[in-house]
Nucleic acid binder design. Sequence first.
DNA 1: TTAAAAATATGATATTTGTCATATTAAAGG
DNA 2: CCTTTAATATGACAAATATCATATTTTTAA
Lengths: 226, 226
Amino acid sequence: MSKCEQCIVREFSSLKALTKDELLKLSDCKTSHIIKKGEVIFEEGENVNGIYCIKDGICKLTKLSANGKDHIVKLVTKGELLGQRSMISDEPVNLSAVALEDMQVCFIPKSEVMGYFDKNNQFSMNVMRSICGDLKEADDHMVNLAQKTVKERLAEALLYLHDTFGENDDKSLKVQLSRDELASIIGTATESCIRLLSDFKKLGLIELTGKKIVLKDINALKKLAE
Amino acid sequence: MSKCEQCIVREFSSLKALTKDELLKLSDCKTSHIIKKGEVIFEEGENVNGIYCIKDGICKLTKLSANGKDHIVKLVTKGELLGQRSMISDEPVNLSAVALEDMQVCFIPKSEVMGYFDKNNQFSMNVMRSICGDLKEADDHMVNLAQKTVKERLAEALLYLHDTFGENDDKSLKVQLSRDELASIIGTATESCIRLLSDFKKLGLIELTGKKIVLKDINALKKLAE
DNA sequence: TTAAAAATATGATATTTGTCATATTAAAGG
DNA sequence: CCTTTAATATGACAAATATCATATTTTTAA
């Protein structure tokens, strides 16, 4: 079993506040998991009873809407924790987590984490700050969905993917989403998303090669996103 | 100066976890304020340096979008705290707070509240749970904005206002919003909102008398909201 | 490798929603 | 109380977006 003390990823999450003793204990009670691309980590409504620490890979957090379509609420990558909100609220998870690429995650049972809240104030504050960050992001996202056009939202989403997850050697976006997934981030029909991507391509803003998307004119995209 | 120990509203907020000693100290450092309808409590981008506890009244939390329109992110009423996220993240506030009716609020300086986080774990957990609740609400709201039609969102908003803030003696919704404000909750143009309200009226779902809105057929509205 | 299935793409069209113009009604202030 | 202003309402039209049909490409799996 790998040691949490030596895990680099830990340094980027709220867990960085843990003491040596706490880390040793954590190593014993955590379980490591490999999640294949497309596999579900947990599903909306489930009782998770702990949190997942993402060691590697990217996943989407989705919610099923009344019309039967999934909406992607957030993308989460290594160094972040999953299931914090549900654990703190003592409720089933509100979102499903599905791997967008192969992932390595560690599961930490609730009993262990709740102990940190009692004894380690720095950890509590880190978690609080992380959830506060999520809340700000969610509020901002909400306003965008309510007030911006689909075109603006698409431009913004492409820039977000670029800035947050970076690009491959061939300059294409590192996170590879299907058109369907991209549409469910910006909240539109798949066809509308495809059509706008084609428009962007014709305008020379992006380049499309299969699933690969290269941002050619970032400034123009920024202007489009307002 | 009124005593926090005797304030009933306190019991409904995270502050219920405070000890007698903490409450006595709180009474000394808090300041009470009357906010008139339409007045601003704080504005997006401001440094608030503390939190507001709402003793009476309702306010809207809004965010200015790129197109110059305000979007109402949330309505907040007595017993709730304002500015928690900003204080914890140590950032300017992300949203503006504007009174929808005359309000009584108390301001508690940051220095005081941060002390509770250190010494009172129950208080920390209460704040965390409250922010987690906001996050869940925001995620849900986001999916609605992305996936539901304006009509569905209007029906939902009316039901939300009814369930959350109740009705007056004449059965009309207690929170009186302008058409413009209602539109900026559901994320649509004012005219579209007015038009749909007229449609709902013609269908016998609601009754309109000036600004007053009475829900006549709650079940039908629920069906419309899906 | 090839057939079948899924994803992407595009046209045609319908529907939803926004915008502008203009009444009509209600509210505010002298 | 009346005048002025703002809010509400509605029509006509334009723009954005969704839906359905169908072609093309890519991926999957037998």
